[in-house]
Amino acid sequence: MDMNLKLKIWRQNGANDQGKMVDYSLSDVSPDMSFLEMLDVLNEQIINEGGEPIAFDHDCREGICGMCSLYINGEAHGPDRGITTCQLHMRKFKDGDTIYIEPFRAKAFPVIKDLVVDRTAFDRIQHQGGFISVNTSGNTQDANSLPISKHAADEAMDAATCIGCGACVATCKNSSAMLFVGAKVSQYALLPQGQVEAADRVRNMVAQMDAEGFGNCTNTGACEVECPKGISLDNIARMNREFFKANI
């Protein structure tokens, strides 16, 4: 059954604008629509009425690129679990609901416009060590010359599934990026290829994380709950261990 909704959406015309919540109403919303398709319909309505559409980030619309964000009714990526906003469907809401839509908020994620934020701080952390230093040569050793236990490979994969969306930061009361950085540090820490540079990697990435203005971790665990990819808090513990190891 189609729904009528009230929407309260953050509008901010550029980084230096103060910004405010603006009310919209939208009718005939199909429960099979994704949340972003609902915003598409709203934007079409705004354009037809002569207004400026609401800016929001999105791209793949299948939960993997990490481009979409949104803080919906006080939760990163909205009320469902294990998904990004583009995978949230309107069947999770009821006719007559009021929905609050805000950008991911953190000092290190300044607003660009409306619901679009700048997450390049994540890239800058990766520039400091989110890699294994191996050139492309065409005569790298054979891939099977170094067996890796399935458990380690699977665990590395679980850490590597992070999509870099920033929900962990938006959720954390300290705006900490420890889940994101921990996942990357863990992926390499779990693999033999990552050992050579392990100490420098964790030191440099943590230093950049601090320089970007992300907060520290106080083990609340909200990030793990809101993470669309189920990245485990264990990764933060592993990063702390790696950091400790690198500094003694």
Binding site: F131, V134, T140, Q141, A153, D154, A156, M157, A160, Q193
Partner: peptide, 8 residues
């Protein structure tokens, strides 16, 4: 070599 965690 880059650390891509392929299935094993």
């Amino acid at each position: 070599a880059q650390g891509v965690p392929f299935a094993r």
